[in-house]
Structures are given as C-alpha cells and as structure tokens.
Design a protein around this nucleic acid. Sequence first.
DNA 1: CTTGTGTCCTGTAGGC
DNA 2: TGCCTACAGGACACAA
Length: 278
Amino acid sequence: MPELPEVETVRRQLVLQVVGRKIGEVKVWRRDIIRYPSASQFLSAIKGKVIVSLNRRGKYLIFRLGSKKLLVIHLGMSGHLRFTRDNTKMRFERLRFRLNRDRALVMDDSRVLGRVYLGTPEEIKEVVKGLARLGREPIDSGFTKDYLYPLLQKRKAKIKSVLLDQRVCAGVGNIYSDEALFRAGILPNRPANSLSYQEVERLAKALRAVLQEGIEHLGTTMEDERYLLPDGNRGGFQKFLRVFSREGEVCRRRQCGGTILRTRIGNRSSYYCPRCQK
DNA sequence: CTTGTGTCCTGTAGGC
DNA sequence: TGCCTACAGGACACAA
C-alpha cells in the first residue's frame, strides 16, 4: 500500500491521535525491523518520551520526540500502522508502542521489509541515506518541468525506472508512476532522455495531479489488501486506477477500446495502454 | 556516477 | 490435498 498518498494519509490520521501522547512500554516482536540503534538502545531511548510532532518526507514518517530525537518509520512494501485501543496481537504485528490513555500504535508488516530508526537529526541524516538524498516532492510547487527536464536529460534508463528513483521523485512508487505515465501519454520503456520538453511538462503535471487525487481519496487499498489505514478504513483510489493491475482489461479512455498490457521493467510490473501511450 | 540485476522476507494465488 | 512457481505498494548492495 504505502506510496506518497498512502503515507500522507497515515500521517494525517495519526497526527490527530498521537501528538502529545507519551510512549510507554514498547513491544518488539521482530527486532530486525529496528535498524538503528541496537534494539536495546532503541528501547531505553524511546521509553517515556512524548511525541511532539509527526511529519512526512517521501515515504518516510518522521516523529519528533520530546528528547529532540527523531523516530523514523519506513513501511516498506507491506508495512502498516494502526492506532488502536485493542490489546490483542495482530497477525503480522512487529512493533507495538503503548501510548498513554490506554491506546497503542501498532506496526504490522507481513514481509518484514519495513525499517525503523531512532536518533538525533544528525544521526538520522548519517544513517538513513535514502532520506538524506530524496528529491523534490511531486506535490510541491517546485516540482515543475524546469526541475524535471534537466534531471531526465541526464538519464538514459527507462522513464519508469527514473520515476521510481527517490532522488528524482520523492514518494512515487509503482502504482502512481504507471498512472502518471498513462495520463501523460508516455510509454514506460522510453529512455528518460528521449522525452521532449512538452512531454516532461505533461508528466510533471500528471504526477502532481495523480498524487493529489490519491491523497484526496485516502490512498489506494487493492482488493486483496487485508490491511487498513490507522483508523481501520480503506483508501478509495483503487476505483480510479486507469492502468495499474488492469492487465487484459479494456482501456478506460473513451473511444480507445484498447487492452491494458503488462511488462517487466526493473523487476517490477508495469502496466500501460499501447494505444494511449507513445 | 549510472544501470541492470539480485536480495532482503513472508504470504498468497494459481497451475498441475 | 500438496508441491512448485510467480508475484507482491520498496530500498539497497553489488558488479559492470
């Protein structure tokens, strides 16, 4: 689930609930989720700290604690956060932070690809390399053709792969890159440096629009997705997907009638309409 | 520095 | 049923 719109939705829901609460007991069911510092140091450093703020950068959630340290959570492919008062362990629960007033923040993650860090801003900058190197957020006003075009000109890799490069587009993942390329009418296997200035302009606008719409619909929760947002609800953007996960289905653009195809780019599935995308 | 490939880890769906 | 393979919202290590 978690690309920029999903992580932002998680942040918006959690910020209303967790800011101002104090962290009590922390249960660690899988210590390899904790990447820095050691699990024992993590536990002693976090206990009793108040959550002062919660921000997002790319797909990273950044909790500022009263100790001035930052708790950084990346959900990976299958991570989720739930805010709950239920004490029963979830099926794929990996971490549980008890919060005051009988609540808890639970991280579940079936594939255990999520990562958690705790440290001073300086330590985080040093340790979480991906966070330090993030490019611009496509939903920011600075994400324009003038930002994107020079970056793409320097790259001959497939445009789909470059969109997934977090140093270029912070927060973009497999779903929204395919959707943006469809909306911009660009095939995912085009070399990035083959895109015209006009195409890059369409792409920059499409990225911004699709991510913004994703946020407005509380992100994407695919049909087989058992996991939910922190409040237990599902996202709604899956109803508006035009190509992702639609292999063999008919193109949604009026008058097209083409069939959505799937290909493999950089070991990831990529969906596109061969009639709408050139 | 860039690029393509493999790995991390676990669960599920589908073919036979 | 069971076994096997492919695939899954991400990031990173590595070799070339």
